[in-house]
Design a binder for these strands. Sequence first.
RNA 1: GGAGAGAUGGCCGAGUGGUCGAAGGCGCGCGCCUGGAAAGUGCGUAAGCUCCAAAAGGGCUUCAUGGGUUCGAAUCCCAUUUUCUCCGCCA
Length: 455
Amino acid sequence: MLIVVKLIFNISLESSKTHSISVILQKNNNIMLQIQFIRENKEFVIERLKIKNFDATDIVANIIDIDSKRREAQIKSDELLAKLNQLSKEIGDLFKSGKQTEANTLKEQVAQLKAEAKIFADSQEQYEHEQQQLIVLLPNLPHSSVPIGKTAEDNKVVFSEGDASNLPSDALPHWELTTKYRLIDFELGSKITGAGFPVYTGKGARLQRALINFFLDEAIAHGYIEVQPPYMVNEASAYATGQLPDKEGQMYHATLDNLYLIPTAEVPVTNIYRDVILKEEDLPLKNCAYSACFRREAGSYGKDVRGLNRLHQFDKVEIVQINTQEESYKTLEEMKEYVASILRKLELPFHILRLCGGDISFTSALTYDLEVYSKAQQRWLEVSSVSNFETFQSNRLKLRYKDATGKTKLAHTLNGSALALPRIVAALLENNQTPDGIRIPKVLVPYTGFDMITL
RNA sequence: GGAGAGAUGGCCGAGUGGUCGAAGGCGCGCGCCUGGAAAGUGCGUAAGCUCCAAAAGGGCUUCAUGGGUUCGAAUCCCAUUUUCUCCGCCA
């Protein structure tokens, strides 16, 4: 079956290269679907956000207050505009029947009304703007199954598989293996660009390419349609998936053209569906994409960033799905299982965490992290994060679908890494080291063209 | 980068100041016709906000985006974005 999706790139940013986020918010003034929910479920919103350790009491109260002012202003402005429209018609009729004088009298009246209407229209716009500014401060509501907790310590292990206990105690960490086998040159990357931009060489480079192809082929075999997105996005896209305004400092910003380097392919791929109304029968929509990812990771330091653990530029294959509100959690489970199946094929020991309220992201309703165990580092490495955003992104994207009854609803968006390369590479190198070299898992051999990395 | 021409609903396409949220066609939905289908035929078919307890129904906004002229703008003016054609440059 071929799914044809109409892509509407209705990017309407004005010329100025210096405009702020708030300008966009103003333009997208019909992102207000969410306000009804907040208005009608005030207490519920506040309660749920406590799970994310977020006190929304003041913001919500403020939003609702502004909302009633906004609506008041709209009622007034609408009334006046309606009157204006009617008078304009009358003037037209009067001119046609030659009644110039009467028409001119009406014109004066209209001028008066117009000035009055403008006042209300302006304040309506102002309120809308203020309200939007506040609404974007609210994180997504966590799903009811999100565990209570403050830090990563409180995440719940929901699944565990594989055994990493058979490594010798003198196993080397990957940053030593990559040097020993000349797979990655971190210093060379520093010379060319800076820390966190490694140069992959020889079999190291070939391993990268092999993994990317393996991940893409797997995804395609599971029904995902591959796309190759741009690596830079505009402000509207970054906003729609929630990178802006929340994580502005995380992205590299090309200021001259006001474009952002993507921190993940999720951003451009999800934005394919910005301003789109799908049909229910088109769902679920499944895309996969390889991209380089760029993250400033401001504030990171120490052993967490050693070697491949945290990079400014890395490779990742991302999977994205769009589904109905009813089906999205089934989809989330399916995606989680899919990522687990890849880890299994790579013969890596892993476990799956359900993130607690304190650790789950701003935009997500429910997230599973998949972590691979590295004996050499004696720690778990996060290699994938699979999330259901429910309507949080689609609300900003204006991504909707018509259900069977013809009603237009917000779609649910989901995505996950499948997978992020650096930590997979780290785990593969560390866990597969033998006295004779590093063993390549069977599934990868057709892709790499070699089954051992030797000196 | 230079010159020119465009941007209208799910799609194609008409529309140069009021009667235009927008002709006509395609597509889609419902019905009629048919033993069933095709053809034919009739009706319907944008989104957001808002009023109303809700439905029905009303109001406002939207013809790339923003601003301007006008009593009144899809239509006129300005800026921007973007598409196409030609030239230049280039992997």
